[in-house]
């Protein structure tokens, strides 16, 4: 697998600081094209911080400093020439709690394309919206409810709406921060199905606190502990034959 796919995102020596506290310590990780990478580890181990540094959302947290190098297709995303707003159209994010805008379903998905001028007329925009909703496997459920507010959907539908919103910008990488933790098991299953489908078009990095979920959805897994990347590799390898004791301990549920 490694030989066939390209590296999409390369992280070298990444450390993160909130003021004086260090949250990430010299993380080296590669994320490949068209794969699902799961980030696992006990709470507070830095996986969310790491995720946020991939689309520079940490810039919004005052006092947060990132060191090291993160490159997207070889370009340093913290470099001078990188326009953050452009970066985020290439690296999208879905949050833990669904957060649709207080607008209609259509407007929610259309927001991204609108501000980035991706459509030159109304029908193009509608096309983008429909495509995104289809890819998020939400189209059938909302095609008659496009004008209703986003908040009128169920929890699982809202989360798929947020996914559609991110997809609308045609990203290359989609980051997901515990996307199912606020959802019931049925909705969770649907999202997991969706992730499997999306793998064909995008690279996905999913933070999850559920070891089982990671095993189900991911191609590769990275285990974080106390700000350090302890171990990463193919899912099967990590689960059947972890090289580090800490990894074994976490996977078998001894801690975390």
């Amino acid at each position: 697998m490694e030989g066939l796919s390209r590296i999409k995102v390369e992280c070298r020596g990444v450390s993160a600081f909130y003021g004086e506290t260090q949250a990430l310590n010299e993380v080296n990780l590669s994320i490949y094209d068209h794969e699902v990478m799961a980030l696992i580890g006990p709470s507070g181990c830095g996986k969310s911080t790491f995720l946020r540094s991939l689309n520079r959302m940490n810039d919004l947290v005052s006092g947060c400093r990132i060191e090291g190098e993160i490159s997207l297709d070889g370009e340093d995303i913290y470099g001078r020439g990188m326009d953050v707003t452009r970066l985020r159209t290439r690296v999208g994010m879905v949050f833990q709690k669904p957060n649709p805008f207080s607008k209609s379903v259509f407007e929610n998905v259309a927001y991204g394309p609108r501000i980035h001028g991706m459509a030159s007329n109304r029908s193009e925009l509608e096309g983008i919206v429909e495509t995104s909703l289809r890819r998020a496997s939400l189209w059938e459920e909302v095609k008659d409810r496009m004008k209703q507010p986003g908040s009128s959907l169920s929890g699982g539908q809202q989360q798929r709406l947020c996914i559609a919103r991110a997809i609308a910008l045609n990203p290359e990488v989609i980051l997901m921060d515990e996307p199912c933790s606020a959802l019931d098991p049925i909705a969770t299953a649907r999202i997991e199905e969706l992730i499997a489908e999306l793998r064909g078009s995008y690279s996905l990095v999913v933070v999850t606190h559920s070891i089982q979920q990671a095993a189900r959805i991911s191609d590769r897994v990275a285990f974080f502990h106390l700000g350090k990347l302890v171990e990463d590799g193919l899912t099967g390898d990590i689960y059947n034959d972890p090289k580090d004791d800490r990894t074994l301990g976490y996977i078998t549920g001894r801690f975390g």
Partner: peptide, 18 residues
Amino acid sequence: VSLSVKYASYALGATRGE
């Protein structure tokens, strides 16, 4: 306005003004 919604907008690549 919930912080989460604000972040969602930024994550979609919007500027502060937008």
